[in-house]
């Protein structure tokens, strides 16, 4: 049976602040899941939403699926255990920049390293919202918040660079208001076997309004972001006249028509390329030097942890003569008392 977005909406009242970017991501998820189920042959009961603590971690309550609301930072570990226990489940994790990258940083990098087949949606608003406005590990240097009244003095993480450094097989970046793009990314994330990291740039209207405004504002979004699609030239701009080329060992923004540059000179996005070099350059692009990359930046196939676990179990089981507890109890050195 074909699902609709309605099938995935729970009857719970959504309690995020009006105007919060999370609403748009939730809508994208509701819309993406019917397509995910269709494409992968899933039924709704196989889907589990897991979360930690923070605004975005309320998401499982807004899904009419199985859900587990964990503790701060630990959702990744909980998801991992769930997937290993039952690999048939389609596990989706909602997490924030504090939850995933501060208190849960260790679990995050190790999940990526293992390449366990879970989909992590990382809501990055560069602020702690639920605790009412403290800086997060993604807050820009100098950000003024309640715990940094004179500005932060620490460098932020770039979640994409962190993920790629940990060996990520799938990294994508979306923008809260680009619902169609998010939908497309989520379907691709679901299709990837392995840890799929989807960084969602979301706004926090209360504590960090305009978190991503420099790139997300309608007026100049097209000029300050680039949507990457596998197999397509890296082209962007309001007039579709800008592009990326690789010159002097770095990326360079060029204008089509200037200096004899044509579409054919532009880089063509290869998300499936195992070599991580160019993906690294792409995730690290920052405005104003570059457009910020959106879309699926990296999508490569590697063995997953859950598959490896299953295969090893099968392999040792086939070789073993010990089939049950009674066999085990009598294995090795034993002696008989008559």
């Amino acid at each position: 049976m074909a699902y609709t977005a309605q099938d995935f909406k729970s009857n719970q009242e959504v309690r995020w602040c009006p105007g919060c970017g999370d609403h748009a991501v939730l809508a994208s998820i509701h819309r993406a899941l019917p397509e995910v189920c269709e494409a992968l042959g899933y039924t709704k009961e196989r889907i589990v939403f897991v979360s930690g603590i923070g605004c975005s971690s309320r998401l499982p309550y807004y899904m009419n699926t199985f859900g587990f609301h964990g503790i701060h930072g630990r959702a990744t570990a909980i998801s991992t255990g769930m997937k290993v226990a039952n690999p048939k489940l389609s596990i989706w994790q909602a997490t924030g920049d504090g939850d995933a990258l501060a208190i849960g940083g260790n679990h995050f990098i190790h999940a990526v390293r293992r390449n366990i087949d879970i989909n992590i949606i990382l809501f990055n608003n560069q602020i702690y919202g639920l605790t009412k406005g403290q800086y997060s590990p993604t807050s820009k240097l100098g950000t003024i918040t309640k715990t940094s009244p004179y500005g932060t003095v620490e460098n932020p993480f770039n979640p994409g660079a962190l993920a790629l450094g940990a060996g990520s097989t799938f990294f994508a970046r979306g923008l809260d208001s680009e619902i169609k793009l998010t939908q497309e990314i989520l379907v691709a994330a679901a299709k990837n076997d392995g840890t799929s990291i989807v960084e969602m740039l979301v706004n926090c209207v209360i504590f960090n309004d305009g978190a991503h405004a420099t790139i997300s504002d309608r007026e100049y979004r097209a000029d300050r972001t680039i949507i990457l699609r596998h197999g397509e030239p890296m082209i962007f701009g309001k007039n579709n006249d800008k592009g990326l080329i690789f010159r002097n060992r770095k990326l360079e923004v060029v204008t089509i028509g200037q200096d004899g540059i044509t579409v054919d000179d532009l880089l063509v996005h290869d998300a499936n390329c195992k070599e991580v070099g160019i993906h690294n350059l792409l995730v690290n692009m920052k405005y104003p030097d570059y457009p910020v990359a959106l879309g699926v930046i990296r999508n490569v196939k590697e063995n997953t942890y859950d598959d490896n676990v299953r295969d090893q179990l099968k392999e040792v089981e086939a070789k073993s003569t010990i089939k049950c507890m009674d066999d085990l109890l009598h294995s090795g050195a034993t002696w008989v008392v008559e």
């Binding site: 630990r74 570990a77 255990g81 769930m82 997937k83 290993v84 226990a85 190790h110």
Partner: peptide, 21 residues
């Protein structure tokens, strides 16, 4: 299924996830 987790907290949290599943 044994999993050598990245830390003690991941040890119990993977177990909790497995229990839920």
């Amino acid at each position: 299924k044994t999993m050598q987790a990245e830390d003690e907290i991941a040890g119990i949290c993977t177990a909790i996830g497995a229990a839920y599943a």
